[in-house]
Computed example of a mutant assay.
Amino acid sequence: MIILNKKVLIVEDEQKILRFMRANLEASNYTVYTAGDGEDALRKYEQFLPDIILLDIMLPKMEGYQVLREIREFSNVPVILVSAKENVVDKVKGLELGADDYIVKPFDITEMLARVKAVLKRTMTDKPDKNPDIVIGSLLISLVTHTVKVNSKEIKLTPTEYKLLVLLAKDSGCVLTHTDLLTKIWGAQYQEETHYLRVCIARIRQKINIPEAQPGYIQTVQMVGYMMVKE
């Protein structure tokens, strides 16, 4: 899969870091737009509709978490949070708000470029399967339109949430391990990042709101992984 000429919005108030990120992304054939504060980030998003956003958390006027909240009200654009905060609590907070990834400053530029490429690849639309729909109880997943419905009501999922749900649904009734899910959805380098998986599963459960033990419910298998309950 070739990912070229994608539009990136960098939201960063430290000019030295901003120039560094911009130069390397442009050298990798990305079209780059920039914003220096949270309010400008929202304006630039509406103006340029980037394919991915690199969003600093500590920003003037509006912090990155609030920017992410507002963006998630109307868009599923991939967002990578960038922050000097490296504890798990901050990472989990960002993931719970709908971030797709989290990079800790200072970072190696090759890591940043790899994360951008991985998130874009993960969130791009795949070719539809031969079987257009997955139906499990009240859950309907259209592999053609990439839509999810529960009891005929459409559910809004991010691309990462959608791909994780599809992976579990395709193997409903089977236990998929943490390592398997993390590797297939996020990549091999995320095998130990179990909080990514835990937060994403929790968000999916909340959105689809299928009662425990009912077909379509995502069941936790302690110390092993997750399984979607089959009819």
Rank of each mutant, 00 (worst) to 15 (best):
K7A: 11
K7N: 15
V8C: 08
V8L: 06
L9C: 12
V11H: 00
E12T: 05
K16P: 03
R19E: 14
R22I: 00
A23L: 12
L25V: 10
E26N: 07
T34P: 01
T34S: 14
E39V: 15
D40I: 04
D40H: 12
E46C: 01
L49S: 12
P50M: 07
D51A: 10
L54K: 02
D56G: 09
L59F: 01
P60A: 09
P60I: 09
K61D: 04
V67Y: 02
V67F: 00
L68T: 04
L68C: 08
R69Q: 09
E70W: 01
R72E: 07
R72S: 06
R72F: 10
E73W: 13
E73F: 04
E73A: 13
F74C: 11
S75M: 01
S75V: 08
N76R: 00
N76W: 10
V79P: 08
V82R: 00
K85M: 11
V88F: 08
V88R: 15
V89R: 07
K91R: 14
K93H: 12
L95R: 01
L95N: 02
I103W: 05
P106G: 13
F107G: 11
I109K: 09
I109G: 05
T110W: 00
T110E: 13
T110K: 05
M112C: 07
M112E: 02
R115T: 13
V116I: 15
A118C: 02
V119F: 03
L120D: 05
K121W: 07
T123H: 06
T123E: 14
M124H: 09
P128S: 08
D133W: 11
I134E: 03
V135M: 10
I136Y: 04
L139F: 14
L140C: 10
L140A: 13
S142Q: 01
V144A: 04
T145F: 11
T145H: 10
E154L: 09
T158N: 11
T158Q: 05
T160M: 02
Y162Q: 03
K163N: 06
K163P: 00
K163W: 09
L165E: 01
V166T: 01
A169L: 05
K170M: 05
D171F: 11
S172L: 03
H178E: 10
H178N: 14
L181D: 03
I185A: 13
G187I: 02
Q189I: 03
Y190E: 05
H195V: 13
R198W: 08
R198Y: 13
R198A: 14
V199H: 03
C200K: 13
R205I: 00
K207A: 12
K207H: 12
K207T: 12
E212T: 15
E212R: 12
Y217W: 14
Y217E: 02
Q219A: 07
V221K: 14
Y226E: 03
V229P: 11
